[in-house]
């Protein structure tokens, strides 16, 4: 089975472009499995956030999946196209990464104290 991921990429200063990745998968594998596959086998520069992988405990892997906010680690891969974009209401860092830390846990806040 092959999932086609259409991923919005880029930095805050450049206009975003969508890149296409074909990802082979087995039954039950997740979108996060797919993103990690891309990083290890197709494009090591793809940026996305995650930490816990299986537990759905860290809540870092939230992104826009087919237009809905969801976790990459609990969404299953499926045949056909899936579009991915960074969270729309958060400041973009790069690719699928946005600024999600609470404001008082960021480095800029710490420099002011």
């Amino acid at each position: 089975m092959i999932a086609t991921l259409l991923i919005q990429r880029g930095t805050p200063t450049a206009s975003p472009k969508v890149e296409r990745f074909d990802v082979p998968f087995a039954d039950g594998q997740t979108l996060l499995d797919g993103l990690r596959y891309i990083r290890a086998h197709i494009d090591p520069t793809l940026a996305f956030r995650f930490s816990c992988i299986n537990a759905n405990a860290c809540k870092e892997c939230m992104m826009l999946i087919d237009g809905e906010v969801d976790y990459a680690c609990t969404t299953r891969l499926r045949d056909g196209e899936i579009t991915l974009a960074p969270l729309p209401k958060k400041t973009l860092i790069g690719d699928l990464v946005t600024e999600i830390a609470p404001p008082d846990e960021r480095i800029n806040y710490a420099t002011k104290r």
């Binding site: 930490s51 816990c52 537990a55 405990a57 860290c58 870092e60 830390a101 710490a110």
Partner: peptide, 19 residues
Amino acid sequence: VILADRSLIGRGGATVMAM
């Protein structure tokens, strides 16, 4: 004290995953 983490505070390691 500075409490630094490569991930989010209190979310990056084993503690938050332990069940």
